[in-house]
Amino acid sequence: MENFIQVVVNGTLISGLYALIAVGLTLIFGVMRVINFAHGEFMMLGGYTTYWLFVLLRLDPLLSLLISMVVLAGLGLIVQRCLINPVLGASSLNQILLTFGLAIILQNVAMILWTSDYVSVQTWYSTHSLRVGFVRISVAKLGIFFMAIILMMLLGIILKKTETGKVLRAVSQDPQTAQLMGIDINRAYMIAFAIGTGLAGLAGAATSTVMSIFPTVGVEFIMKAFAIVVFGGLGSVAGACLASFILGVTESLVGTYVPGGGGWAEAVSFTVLILVLIFRPKGIFSS
């Protein structure tokens, strides 16, 4: 029983990170109908931003988290304007090739600039853990988890209550009619892309404190993020949050209780992806 609680806690904590990545991806898809294969690379760049701010300016990740988010949102804006926008009208194959190519370019640029060595940010809270009874809770991961929850709630409020949020939802539901409302959809695309890459940057920054950053770190995450996005229903922010949680805990349970589970845990996301695509292509939470 003690072990079981620990396992669920582990899974829950990791799901916050999953949500940060997956929600950005699903938002971009929902609004723009573009699958951003370079999403993991934005995360990687966010990690390096935090890392270099730490190494060069001794800036604590708690502060540089926000800088990384802003930097990556800005980079997202540029990428959206210069690269994604021109192919928005093109076939989805072109869009996939573009974002996929971008991912590979970013990986290679990172490899050239920073080599393929693993880097991470060492702070007192990186490996510090709280003891709650018999359960150990990593301080950094707990922080990331709460940050993710707060951000998701904030994003929920923005989408629900603000004019910009309503604009984003309108564009995702019916871009043509949205234009008839006087909505500048290019602006909406830019906002969605910037929010998405900003969240990815934040996820990368968080990752650099509890794990490692390297040029292909995004590849590891993006596959799970896709599974989560499909699982939660393409474009659904709430679905992605719930799917992150379910996936995180399931992986943790499988990893701990299935014999030889270390390999199986990684397969959970793919199994989920395949099953959902076969049986519930609109995601499990769709009505």
Partner: peptide, 17 residues
């Protein structure tokens, strides 16, 4: 072409965007 997942009120609000 109403926005199906938004409320009536939200649809109207967008009408005055």
């Amino acid at each position: 072409c109403v926005f199906p997942l938004m409320t009536v009120l939200e649809n109207l609000e967008l009408g005055s965007h």
